[in-house]
């Protein structure tokens, strides 16, 4: 009985303690109201935080991405030569677009092209493209040279992911003439990505590439290079 009375007395006398008590009461009220408010619907909050679709979407790009990443590296080493050696022989010098169609007709055997088509039903998944280089000369015999060009160019190809915006993938195709000493001329964009910065970075990647001199008797090569930026 005496304790609360004494407390009250001292509170009345001291404005500081008064302020403390008022603030204490206010805070307690706030805290209690908050915790009550929180208790009312705690499950909903928890659910929101976990974002289930986040977990679901994670493996999906992987399913697309994993095979293309693993294979194209090997494909690149052997494929470009085969493609250029075998196909153009049949149809002489076909235009670039014609070539592309050819490839798409012939390649469905590969899993790469099939897989996305099957999964398209789920979402508007884009075709998974990879960087790809084509040399005009049909039977260019030096295999190492393909890889060296690819290494030289892709060393400079590191565009910021932010350029993608909401896209999953952007591709830009450039075309250039390669002189005997490895110098690049007549560099142009043959298929724009419609992102000016990405286009510029693609031109830059080719321009800054240190391409080795052309071995053998060939004095000049025309090269088409598709550079892809995809979400990883």
């Amino acid at each position: 009985m005496s304790m609360p009375a004494a407390l009250l007395e001292s509170v009345k006398r001291d404005p500081f303690k008064k302020a403390v008590t008022v603030s204490l009461v206010l805070h307690l009220f706030v805290i209690i109201s908050f915790t009550l408010h929180d208790m009312m619907k705690p499950r909903q909050v928890v659910k929101k935080a976990y974002l289930f679709d986040m977990v679901n979407t994670r493996p999906q790009p992987r399913r697309f991405a994993a095979p293309p990443v693993a294979k194209p590296r090997e494909v690149k080493k052997q494929e470009p030569a085969k493609k250029t050696v075998e196909k153009p022989k049949e149809k002489a010098i076909s235009t670039k677009k014609a070539k592309k169609e050819e490839k798409q007709k012939e390649e469905p055997k590969e899993q790469l092209q099939d897989e996305p088509k099957e999964t398209v039903q789920e979402k508007d998944a884009p075709q998974t493209l990879q960087n790809e280089m084509t040399i005009s000369q049909p039977d260019f015999p030096f295999k190492y040279y393909y890889q060296q060009i690819i290494n030289a160019v892709e060393r400079n190809w590191n565009p910021p992911q932010e350029l993608l915006g909401s896209e999953m993938q952007l591709a830009v195709e450039v075309k250039f003439r390669l002189l005997k000493n490895g110098q690049v001329t007549d560099l142009e964009i043959s298929e724009s990505s419609w992102n000016t910065i990405l286009d510029k970075l693609a031109l830059r990647a080719i321009e800054k590439a240190r391409i080795p001199p052309i071995p053998g008797d060939e004095s000049e090569l025309t090269i088409t290079y598709r550079l892809v930026l995809s979400r990883n």
């Binding site: 015999p141 030096f142 190492y144 071995p215 053998g216």
Partner: peptide, 10 residues
């Protein structure tokens, strides 16, 4: 040499 075609490079 190129190891596939055995062609001389330099």
């Amino acid at each position: 040499h190129d190891a596939y075609s055995l062609n001389l490079i330099t």
